[in-house]
Lab assay of single mutants.
Amino acid sequence: MSIQHFRVALIPFFAAFCLPVFAHPETLVKVKDAEDQLGARVGYIELDLNSGKILESFRPEERFPMMSTFKVLLCGAVLSRVDAGQEQLGRRIHYSQNDLVEYSPVTEKHLTDGMTVRELCSAAITMSDNTAANLLLTTIGGPKELTAFLHNMGDHVTRLDRWEPELNEAIPNDERDTTMPAAMATTLRKLLTGELLTLASRQQLIDWMEADKVAGPLLRSALPAGWFIADKSGAGERGSRGIIAALGPDGKPSRIVVIYTTGSQATMDERNRQIAEIGASLIKHW
C-alpha cells in the first residue's frame, strides 16, 4: 500500500482519535458579512469528516447552483462504474471539434489522439474542462443518470439537468442544476469515506481534487503551510461562485467545507476574496 493510499485508508482512524471539535460562531459572522459585502445569498456548511456531524452552517438547506462543483460527483459516478466493471479508466475516447464547448483548455489539445477516461476526469476536476465533463456525462448516460446515481446514494436534493455550459445559467428560483450545502457536503463525505467506492477509487477521487489547479484564489489562499486540501470550485452566471473541499491540518483532511453564493453584482475577484476570507476565519478558529 502506498503512503497516499495509507493516508486515505486511515482518515477515519486518525479522526477518531482527534480531540473533540467545537464550532466557532466567528466564522458564521464572516459568512454573514460576506453576504453584506456581496449583496447576495451565501450558503455555508462545515462537517466533521469522521462523524458527519454538522459543526457550523448557514442557509444549509437553500438551493444554490452547483456550477462546476458537480464534476466531482460526476467522476465519482464514473469511478463507481469502474468498480462495477462497467468502465475502464484506460479506455480512450475520441471526439471532434464539434464536441468542444466553451472553456476546454485540455480537451482542445487532444482532438487528434483523444483522451482516456482517467485523463478526462483529471481534466474535468483539476482544470474544470467543460468538454471533458460533457464527454464523461455521455459515458454514464447524461445528466439524468448522474441525478439517479445521487438518488441511489441517498441524495434526493442534488440534481443535474443540463450539460456544460448551460448548467451554469443560475436563474433565480430555478431548481435545475442545483444542490443544497448540506446535501453536497453529505454526498461528498460519502464519496470520500464511505463504502460506495473502493479504496482505490476513493484515493483516485481525492487525488484529482488535491491536484486542483484553478481554485488557488479561494480556500487555498488562506491555508497555512502543512495543511491538506482537496477541492473543486465552480463559477456561473449572475454572480455565482462555489467551492467544495476536504481539508485539515497535519497533512490530512478532517472536515468537509461547502460554500456557495449566487445573485451578486460583485466582480469575480471580490467573490473570490470573500470566500478566501471565510476560509481564513475557519482556519483561525479551527
Rank of each mutant, 00 (worst) to 15 (best):
K252C: 03
P249W: 12
P65Q: 05
I45A: 00
D161E: 05
T126E: 01
F58L: 00
C75V: 15
Y103Q: 05
R271V: 12
E26I: 15
R41M: 00
W163Y: 12
D36I: 14
P172Y: 14
T158P: 08
S51Y: 00
L89V: 02
K284G: 07
V82K: 15
D207I: 08
A276E: 13
K190C: 15
D207Q: 10
E56N: 13
G43I: 00
D33G: 02
A133Q: 01
I275S: 13
L38G: 04
P143G: 04
R92F: 01
I171Q: 06
G194L: 13
Y95P: 02
K190S: 15
T267V: 13
S264C: 01
G263M: 07
A215H: 11
G251A: 08
A77N: 00
K32G: 04
G226R: 03
R159G: 04
A235M: 01
A276M: 08
D177F: 13
P143R: 06
Q204A: 04
A235W: 04
T261H: 04
K53S: 10
R63G: 07
D48Y: 11
E46N: 13
P143M: 01
G239Y: 14
L146P: 14
D33E: 03
D48P: 09
M115T: 13
R92K: 02
A34V: 03
F228R: 02
R63N: 11
V82M: 01
A246E: 10
D155N: 13
S254G: 05
S51W: 01
N98V: 01
K30N: 15
V29R: 04
E119G: 02
P181K: 01
V258D: 07
A133V: 06
A230T: 09
L197C: 04
T112L: 15
L49R: 02
D212A: 12
S264K: 13
H94E: 06
R255D: 13
L136Y: 09
T138V: 12
G236Y: 08
V258F: 07
N98R: 00
G76S: 06
A182G: 10
Y260V: 05
S80M: 10
R238K: 12
S240M: 01
R202A: 09
V82Y: 14
E119V: 12
G216D: 05
R162A: 11
K190P: 15
S281L: 09
F228V: 02
I259V: 09
I275A: 12
D250I: 02
A245M: 14
L282I: 11
R118E: 04
R118N: 01
A182R: 07
S128Q: 02
R59W: 06
E46T: 15
G226P: 07
E119H: 14
V29P: 04
V258C: 12
T262V: 12
E169N: 04
T178R: 11
E195V: 00
V29K: 02
L199I: 08
L205P: 09
T107N: 04
G39Q: 15
E87V: 05
R162D: 11
A182D: 07
V101M: 11
K30F: 14
H156D: 12
A132W: 03
E164R: 04
D48E: 09
A200W: 09
R159S: 00
A77L: 00
I171R: 05
M184W: 05
D269A: 03
C75N: 15
F228N: 09
D177G: 08
I54A: 07
E195T: 04
P253Y: 01
N152L: 12
T198C: 11
A280S: 11
R162S: 08
E166M: 11
L135V: 07
A34I: 11
K30V: 15
G114W: 00
R118M: 05
S264W: 07
M184Y: 03
I171N: 00
G263S: 13
P60C: 05
A132C: 10
N173F: 14
T116R: 03
H94V: 06
Q274D: 11
S264P: 13
G239I: 02
I140H: 11
G43V: 01
